[in-house]
Amino acid sequence: MSDGLSHERAPAATPAGLLPVTDLDDSPLSAEEIAYGQASKASATIEAYRTDWQEFCDWCAREHHAPAPAPPAAVSGYLTALARAGAKVSTMSRRMAAIRFFHALQDLPDPTSPARVTTVWEGIRRVHGAPPDQAPPLMPPQLFDLVAATATTRDFRTRPSEPDLAGARDRALLLVGFFSALRCSELCALTVDNVLPHERGRTLVIPSSKTNQRGEQTELVVLPYASHPDACPVRALDAWLQLSGITEGPLLRRVSTGNRPAPTGLHRASVNRRITELAAAAGHAEQGYSPHSLRAGFVTWAHLRGASDREIAAQTRHRSLASVGGYVRVQTAWSSNAATNMGL
């Protein structure tokens, strides 16, 4: 890259992220302003944007483009390179969002809006567009196979055997995750204070969510008692809390090698790892279950049990009933279908 171009891209060349922001318009931000700025988007979104922005900067460096302000040729060329490499449309869409975000952060014009970029982007979507990947639904009986694969006892060389805390947590994770139909981020963010008692089970308070990021309205999710103790999310959750001694803070936590609960909660990567390991232990490794499989499993299972889309949405908090219908997989395509009752 030439010296002139290096100088041109200097505003965007700070380490991937530009957050926390200290100066946007030659006027230093206060600590409170920085805190509110960081809270403007979910931390997971910001981290994803950091990574995406750095990749764009790296590509611009190789191709001798300025990343900020990025010319239309840089953005359209970057999208074309991604499409050539086989990137998914959803991935490219997120990369564009990151580029927009970091330009807005510096009060620069949106480089994804010029006609050259929008035309190329529309062509990429038409040529490479595909239905979004859907997590395979994890539901009975496979769900209970994973529950049965959790550990129950922990053996030690220097002290008596103890109930396996990680196993107790995993049972709560699986059953609460399924019955509550929470998104993985919501499940990981639960605290003890979010769990309220109810005569029919528990009520989960969700302060903010993907569709309620500012927490403008409190969302409630029910966690009912199940008739079979081994399939009951409430009993599994109570057992985990009793064994771990957790009375405040994060609800679902990591467990140390010494069989003690950590002060920090789980994150998506650890949830994904546990589900993958339990699926392998239960003989279902080939299914490719992920954290989202619990939510998908709830929707699919509820539909198979005769629940209406509106009833399902009351638990999943989908604002669109069409979104609920999108979860109904191949398992339900043959039920209540006119093509199977043609009398021919």
Rank of each mutant, 00 (worst) to 15 (best):
T218E: 04
T112F: 04
T45L: 11
E162L: 06
P261R: 01
V255T: 00
G283E: 09
L187C: 01
H198A: 11
A66I: 07
S40Y: 08
G86K: 12
Q331E: 15
T80W: 13
Q106M: 14
R329A: 03
H103C: 14
S308H: 13
F298D: 02
L243W: 10
S2D: 03
V221D: 06
P207T: 07
W301H: 13
A68H: 03
H64V: 06
D52G: 06
H64K: 12
V328Q: 01
I246L: 04
G123S: 15
A172N: 12
W59C: 14
D238W: 12
R274A: 10
T340V: 07
T264I: 10
P132G: 08
A70I: 02
G201N: 14
R159F: 10
L278P: 05
L344E: 08
E55T: 05
Q287A: 07
V21W: 05
E248L: 11
L204T: 00
A31I: 15
G326N: 05
V205T: 14
V324R: 01
Q142M: 10
T257Q: 12
V221F: 01
R310Q: 14
P291Q: 05
Y225T: 03
R50L: 02
Q213P: 15
C184M: 03
A70Y: 00
E216Q: 13
P291D: 00
G4E: 06
V205G: 09
N259R: 14
C60R: 11
A115H: 08
A338S: 07
G288H: 09
A42F: 15
V271M: 06
N194M: 06
A296E: 06
F144E: 09
S2E: 03
V328A: 00
A13G: 10
Q213F: 11
G283M: 12
R295T: 02
P140R: 02
Y78N: 09
A35F: 00
D58W: 03
H303I: 04
E162F: 05
W59K: 15
